[in-house]
Design a protein around this nucleic acid. Structure first.
Length: 813
RNA sequence: GCCGAAGUGGCGGAACUGGUAGACGCGCCGGACUCAAAAUCCGGUGGGGCCUGGCCCCGUGUGGGUUCGAUUCCCACCUUCGGCACCA
């Protein structure tokens, strides 16, 4: 018998697919596009071209691959594009390590990865390929930036920033993990710099509320985003500084505790600190504290014991009229709320710790509703379900939730409060002082200030520079000829913005560009994106649960507001796949523990390489690469090949009524359900293996030919090369376009099933029963079984439990 | 501390709405082929006990509960992993 030779088969079919452009899905004219109702947009997060593909990548892209084939086989027009996130730190750092120019190395990597993807036979529409570093693409990134600018959604501001001393650039909040740089792990420093930001906080509520519109996202991703946005409802309360004509607002979620505020704290970075202490005897001590606190790292600030200094100033509690002292302490953060708090030591652990240390008064104002108020003053009272107020003037005795509203309303009348919402979310800092990124299309003019580059002058091309290594200021600044321009507004001397954009800007709209990838008059045509989008199935790593996924949602909402797209959420369904571990660490080039697919393709062929990474385990969970299991896939493909050729010699046969036919039908149902509904990728492979084992054991079954066709057809999304070859040899047309073999319901009704008979829950017998047998018939069959009778032994049947098509249980006394 | 996910053979893992626990693969054991080995193919494989047919008992992190029946549902606990965390 002819040997299974993956090399020949794979080369043959890849040539056929390339010639017929099997995976290209060009956009038809608009009116035709609208008429085509069955579309699926399958999208995997675009890779950074910082190296080559390894088996971890193979596993990820196989998910989109299987879904794309599966949907296509079910009669859908499937958009399944691919591109490269080629700007940014990963690519630039890889280039620096290699001592190469980023463009050169990036483009080399792109070519190499594309080659690997082609060789493995993925059904990708390469006609829509994009790379974010190409002017054709970043021209529109700049264009979109200008639309944000026009609407005031991007702005420039001097801000305290997180600075990575290793990468020599500013980081977004989201890129700082435990006080360290997300990419390199260096401890992040604080600096004050003029930076560009996106006003993502303006969309905080919509990013929360419009989660409702998502079809299917993992709950944990939504939870992570909710936590990140960190919305909390409360009030802004205004405290007046005694002796100065100054009001300081604070944000609190517990306005009900205002009568318990016994001191007041402002953050060291608070702009009013200097004004508060100017000319007082505390000025030197406070300045010293502020200076010292500024030098602390984020980690120090969090782990040390709470400390602070008094300012000598007092504010007036707007509710009680009490004068309470103002302190400066760095346990209050400038970035959250208003940078100042009213301290209620009896009901806030942090305030309590601070009060204990500096011997400040503690006043209980909220107690559990059922209990007696705690003895005396000075205790910490933890928050509980049912609470009422004490020591709070006219509000004493009121339940806490009601008191919250009442106190805010009462203070609001006196212009000392308003309801407010606090967010943990900060604006998105997008400036990067690095070379390899999208230039920000802005000009700084001596006379006109900040001037946007006109659309007609886009793209602002990234200049060639001698030295692109990071130095703490953008390398673009060294390109004098590029920096100096005439102001687009007044024609006077001006300088270009030299910061580049965060890579996450590039990847916040790429999914739109794919729909209309070759448009050179606009980023995309609205009619076309409205047809393809939202993405039906988005696939990517959990590591992007917050960053990329929230930025992309933000961009889509802004574009929807501008009228560029007709939808508000970009990704209807999201699937987050697990990572592949090898030798105890996440498989990655930097850890040096990659498994190279090329080697395996050389030895075993592409189909085995496609199969094994997804067979490893459930794809939403992390998996450990087990090299020993790979051979099993090769054995399976050989077996499939054998039974396939066997069926070629003895074709056709029946498609129902035999055990093998039944098995085949059951496998169709299982695979369809697993891929289509459950998004399970490993169990369908197991089901087909089971079917193939069954075929090779059932030499005589007349449904053999049908079962083989079923197996070939079902495994095709995983291993299209061998499937296509066998399908052809079995005498059929092209497989990827053909419908799936369907079970005939009328025939299924004739089938039998195995009835399990139990007595008191113990299995006593099994019998074959017609599938359409009634419950009474099932019970009758159970009772007439000799084995069951022996166990009944004349005892009375107390209860009969019938599970249709499965089981009868006779319960006896 | 708060929120979430998960604990099943020697291993990766199946069991979709409570219905024969351990599919499929790896590994291991046995057999065929071979002078022999490798490769390949076929069969067996949760633990224990009677027994040469066959049958019984125990088993899904621990302890309870609901149910005729629980890996699945409920309560408590243990362990592991992930997210958030001076957020007022």
């Amino acid at each position: 018998m002819e040997r299974y030779d993956p090399k020949t088969i794979e080369a043959k079919w890849q040539k056929v697919w390339a010639e017929e452009r099997a995976f290209s899905v060009p956009n038809p004219p608009l009116d035709e596009l609208r008429a085509h109702r069955n579309k699926t947009y399958v999208l995997e997060m675009l890779p950074y071209p910082s190296g080559e593909l390894h088996m971890g990548h193979v596993r990820n892209y196989m998910l989109g691959e299987v879904v794309a084939h599966f949907r296509r086989r079910h009669g859908y027009a499937v958009l399944r594009p691919m591109g490269f996130d080629s700007f940014g730190l990963p690519a630039e750092n890889a280039a620096i390590d290699a001592g190469r120019h980023p463009r050169e190395l990036t483009e080399e990597n792109i070519a190499r990865i594309r080659g690997q993807m082609t060789r493995i036979g993925w059904a990708i529409d390469w006609d829509r390929m994009l790379a974010t570093h190409e002017p054709d693409y970043y021209r529109w990134t700049q264009w979109l930036f200008l639309r944000f600018f026009e609407r005031g959604l991007t702005y420039r501001k001097e801000v305290p920033v997180k600075w990575c001393p290793n990468d020599q650039t500013v980081l977004a909040n989201e890129q700082v993990i435990d006080g360290r740089c997300e990419r390199c792990g260096a401890e992040v420093e604080a600096r004050n710099l003029e930076q560009w930001l996106f006003r993502i906080t303006a969309y905080a509520d919509r990013l929360l509320d419009e989660m409702e519109e998502l079809e299917s996202w993992p709950e944990r991703v939504l939870t992570m985003q909710r936590n990140w946005i960190g919305r909390s409802e409360g009030a802004e309360l205004i405290f007046r500084v005694d002796g100065l004509d100054v009001d300081i607002p604070v944000f609190t979620t517990r306005p009900d505790t205002i009568f318990g505020a016994t001191f007041f704290v402002v953050a060291p970075e608070h702009p009013l600190v200097e004004h508060l202490v100017e000319g007082t005897s505390h000025a030197d001590e406070v300045r010293e504290y502020v200076r010292h606190a500024g030098g602390r790292t984020a980690v120090e600030r969090e782990t040390k014991e709470k400390d602070g200094v008094p300012t000598g100033r007092f504010v007036v509690n707007p509710a009680s009229g009490a004068r309470i002292p103002v302190w400066v302490a760095d346990y209050v953060l400038m970035e959250y709320g208003t940078g100042a708090i009213m301290a209620v030591p009896a009901h806030d652990e942090r305030d309590y710790a601070f009060a204990k240390r500096y011997d400040l008064p503690i006043k209980t104002v909220v107690v559990p509703a059922d209990d007696e108020p705690p003895e005396g003053e000075g205790a910490f009272v933890a928050h509980t379900e049912n609470e009422r107020l004490v020591n709070s003037a006219q509000f004493s005795g009121m339940p806490a939730p009601e008191a919250k509203r009442a106190i805010v309303a009462w203070l609001e009348e006196r212009h000392a409060a308003r309801p407010a919402v606090g967010y943990r979310l900060r604006d998105w800092l997008l400036s990067r002082q690095r070379y390899w990124g999208c230039p920000i299309p802005i000009v700084h003019c001596e006379r006109c200030g900040i001037v946007p580059v006109p659309d007609s002058e886009l793209p602002v091309l990234l200049p060639e520079v001698e030295d692109y290594l990071p130095k703490g200021r953008s390398p673009l600044a060294t390109a004098e000829g590029w920096v100096r321009v005439d102001c687009p507004s007044c024609g006077g001397p001006a300088r270009r913005e030299t910061d580049t954009m965060d890579t996450f800007v590039d990847s916040s709209w790429y999914f739109l560009r794919y729909a209309d990838a070759r448009n050179d008059e606009a980023p995309f045509a609205r009619e076309i994106v409205d047809y393809w989008l939202p993405v039906n199935q988005y696939i990517g790593g959990i590591e992007h649960a917050i960053l990329h996924l929230m930025y992309a949602r933000f961009f889509t909402k802004v574009l929807n507001d501008i009228g560029l797209v007709g939808f508000r959420e970009p990704f209807a369904r999201l699937f987050t796949q697990g990572m592949v571990y090898y030798r105890g660490a996440k498989m990655s080039k930097s850890k040096g523990n990659v498994v190279d697919p090329d080697e395996y393709m050389d030895r075993y062929g592409a189909d085995a390489c496609r199969l094994y990474p997804v067979f490893l385990g459930p794809v939403d969970q992390d998996a450990e690469w087990q090299d020993s299991g790979f051979e099993g896939m090769v054995r399976f493909l050989n077996k499939l090949w054998r039974v396939g050729l066997g069926a070629v010699e003895a074709p056709a046969g029946v498609s129902a009524g035999t055990p093998l036919a039944r098995k085949a039908h059951a496998t169709i149902a299982k695979v369809t359900d697993d891929i289509g509904r459950r998004f399970a990728m490993n169990t369908p492979i197991a089901a087909v293996m089971e079917l193939v084992n069954e075929i090779s054991r059932s030499e005589e079954d007349p449904a053999r030919g049908f079962a083989v066709e079923t197996a070939v057809s079902l495994i095709q999304p995983y291993t299209p090369h061998i499937a296509e070859e066998l399908w052809q040899r079995l005498g059929h047309e092209r497989l990827w376009a053909s419908p799936w073999p369907e079970a005939d319901p009328a025939q299924l009704e004739q089938e039998t099933f195995e009835l399990v008979i139990q007595v008191n829950g113990r299995v006593r017998d099994r019998v074959e029963v017609a599938a359409d047998a009634s419950e009474d018939e099932l019970v009758a069959r159970a009772k007439e079984s000799p084995k069951v009778r022996a166990h009944l032994d004349g005892k009375q049947i107390r209860q009969t439990i019938v599970v249709p098509r499965k089981l009868v249980n006779l319960v006896v006394a």
